[in-house]
């Protein structure tokens, strides 16, 4: 692995992208009719399904909050999503941690005070994992929430960034994620530029932080533009039919 070339002398990555280039993003909105909102998002070879149910009545008394909605988020990875088959799709530490992180992220973005005493369920499943799982999940949930008509402050867009040879690299695939560089995942509300999710895996020097973060935020702006056009296309199609 040590001599694996993450960035060629020409400045191209292992899959032929430029350092700041995103993978191809495609989306299928409202594919699941039972759910109130759903989205299937494919970013390169990472495929994610997000479904949103609610707002509905709380199922347990302890979940009820008198001034805002309770958000329940469940993150899972299909057993066939990784190259080595997983034993069970959910319940391990990393899945629980991701669920909690996603919950906190969307608590910051959803206008929860619109629906007191109710609950919003978010289910997200990785069908195929090829890096940036959390970032793609955040993007997919955003699409599903918009489809469900749940009031939000803004889109939540996320990308992952790493640093190789002092060059920030955006939207990592599996190889780059497992590479020597640190990984920074940043989720923002693109229009106000506020950060709602930030995670750094392994050590990132403070001098590089600003550079990497800036590139991540730029990536989020581009993700936002793409998601926006995808949603608008979907709306035009659904209005016409």
């Amino acid at each position: 692995m040590a001599d694996f070339e993450y960035l060629s002398p020409e400045g191209l990555r292992s899959d032929g992208r430029r350092p700041q280039e995103l993978r191809v993003l495609s989306c299928n909105i409202s594919h699941c009719l039972q759910a109130d909102g759903s989205a299937y998002l494919q970013q390169g070879n990472t495929r994610v399904i997000a479904t949103v149910y609610g707002p509905h009545d709380v199922s347990r008394r302890s979940e009820a909050q008198h001034d805002k909605a309770f958000i329940n988020c469940q993150f899972s990875m299909a057993t066939f999503s990784t190259s080595e088959r997983k034993k069970r799709p959910t319940g391990d530490k990393s899945c629980l941690e991701t669920s909690l992180a996603l919950k906190k992220t969307f608590e910051a973005a959803i206008l929860t005070d619109t629906y007191p005493h109710s609950k919003i369920d978010i289910f997200v499943q990785i069908l195929q994992s090829d890096g940036s799982d959390k970032a793609v999940s955040i993007n997919a949930i955003t699409m599903a929430l918009i489809d469900a008509g749940i009031p939000m402050k803004d889109y939540v867009c996320a990308t992952s960034v790493t640093l190789i040879n002092d060059t920030p690299i955006v939207d990592l695939n599996y190889f780059e994620e497992r590479g020597p560089g640190p990984e920074l995942i940043v989720g923002t509300l693109p229009k106000s530029g506020k950060i709602v999710f930030l995670q750094v895996n392994s050590r990132l020097h403070i001098d590089n932080m600003e550079k990497v973060l800036k590139e991540g935020m730029n990536g989020n702006q581009r993700v936002h533009t793409i998601l926006d056009t995808l949603i608008k296309k979907h709306l035009e199609k659904s209005i016409l039919t």
């Binding site: 109130d36 509905h56 206008l111 629906y115 918009i146 489809d147 008509g149 803004d154 229009k191 709306l235």
Partner: peptide, 25 residues
């Protein structure tokens, strides 16, 4: 003022009419 949902702007009062029927509390 910003929109919080996906919908159409009504001309008179600048409210957003949702495309998805909203959940009523």
């Amino acid at each position: 003022t910003y929109s919080s949902i996906c919908g159409k702007v009504t001309d008179s009062k600048s409210t957003v009419k949702p495309l998805v029927p909203p959940f009523m509390c």
